[in-house]
């Protein structure tokens, strides 16, 4: 048992929880969060792939990829949230 193995399984668990949420939930805000969980799970897998038993230094390339992924994810989240606000406004007008 090693740190890499433990957090690898954690990442897989988080990814599948997010995947399940994205498929099963219908509330848009929850779906966005489910996809966020998927992205963190995928990040876990890359960070684990880069990890080496100390004192060896980890592989920096997957780290850079995950940082890129985090920034892409906040961009996607911001657009999704704007769409949710717009949907809310449209439905509000519809009900009036």
């Amino acid at each position: 048992m090693s740190t890499g193995l433990i957090f690898g399984l954690t990442g897989l668990g988080v990814f599948v929880v997010g995947l399940c949420g994205a498929l099963v939930l219908v509330d848009p805000l929850r779906r966005v969060l489910a996809l966020k969980l998927c992205s963190v799970g995928a990040g876990f897998m890359l960070v684990v792939a880069a990890w080496k038993a100390p004192p060896e230094a980890p592989d920096p390339v997957p780290h850079a990829l995950v940082i890129t992924g985090i920034v892409v994810m906040i961009s996607a989240t911001a657009v999704a949230l704007a769409l949710i606000r717009r949907l809310h406004t449209l439905e509000h007008e519809h009900h009036d």
């Binding site: 990040g43 960070v47 880069a50 780290h63 995950v66």
Partner: peptide, 14 residues
């Protein structure tokens, strides 16, 4: 967890 995996840059970004 990412700090434990020796990825401080990723942990800071997250």
């Amino acid at each position: 967890a990412w700090v434990r995996l020796a990825a401080p840059d990723v942990a800071l970004a997250e």
